[in-house]
Design a protein around this nucleic acid. Structure first.
Lengths: 154, 154
DNA sequence: CTAACTGTAACTATATTTGTTACAGACGAT
DNA sequence: ATCGTCTGTAACAAATATAGTTACAGTTAG
């Protein structure tokens, strides 16, 4: 969702967008968007203005905002996590598995971050453009495996 | 948890473990373990036996079981996912952001899988051993950033 | 046959995320 | 100045996903 939001702003060039406009594209509630915008603003990815004629826009050029920036702004946990309750302290494996797994988790997080750091909002916009210029919206882009559930909404 | 479970079995060498023993080390309910063992058995990572003197053990050598095998056995979704509800079809960004993001998600998943594919249960066991031989359990391993919440349990 | 296991269904509990309503405060326009 | 239109944020409800629990049928060694 956050990537979607920042992509909209890059698309809008430098015109501030209202949370309601963004919410309509994302298909959710404006407050959800505003909450997210607050986090993005704290990380200096967007700037928002209150009042009439207000709205939010990117704080800097789309090519200077990476998906890693966004990820770190809105996500505060790594991709995996440990046991809900810590394992038994009586078991030799249980006591120490945590620190071993944390090392693994760090490796995974680093790999994810390396990927995200190499994709900017500008990249997303340009990957988007071919689809958009495709008149009937039924282009040659490969069918994705990760099926998106069709809801009754929209 | 799944890695913990398979590590216990590698540790136990070839002796079958009961779900209750495993549950004690993991600090959870035996049924949670049995549920997970079913998934691991479907992926042929463990073999279980019913009846008295039953239990579960690894289906093959620890060095032939990677964390990717385990991940695929128990986790059926990638590390990130798209919007809960699909975006607006009226918005040029909303219509097409999904396929662009799916490409990104595939890149991320691939990176994660590459990391997991290179770590075996045998590796985990050997990374574990230095900690275990450390008498008072307070060794030189670096303090992990990812704090594990201390619960009242155990 | 019995005791000790697994497999599994059905349910409850807990945690996290998302959506909603409500409202105070900021700000431009008039 | 004050009015209409925004954001920021609190408080809460709904939805989702995961974990934990109870119960029991089916399997197997002795």
């Amino acid at each position: 969702m956050a990537v979607h939001v920042l992509t909209l702003m890059a698309w809008a060039d430098d015109e501030p967008l209202k949370s309601e406009q963004v919410a309509e594209s994302v298909n959710t509630n404006p407050v959800v968007i505003r909450r997210m915008l607050c986090e993005l603003a704290e990380s200096q990815l967007v700037v928002s203005q209150s009042g009439s004629m207000g709205g939010s826009k990117l704080a800097r050029d789309p090519e200077r905002i990476t998906l890693l920036d966004i990820y770190q702004a809105v996500e505060n946990r790594g991709v995996f996590s440990l046991h809900r309750h810590p394992p038994s302290r009586k078991c030799p494996v249980g006591v120490n598995i945590g620190s071993v797994l944390n090392d693994v988790l760090d490796e995974v997080d680093t790999a994810v971050e390396r990927v995200l750091a190499n994709i900017t909002i500008k990249d997303v916009v340009s990957r988007l453009r071919p689809c958009v210029s495709d008149a009937n919206g039924n282009g040659k882009r490969k069918q994705v495996a990760r099926a998106q559930l069709v809801s009754v909404r929209n």
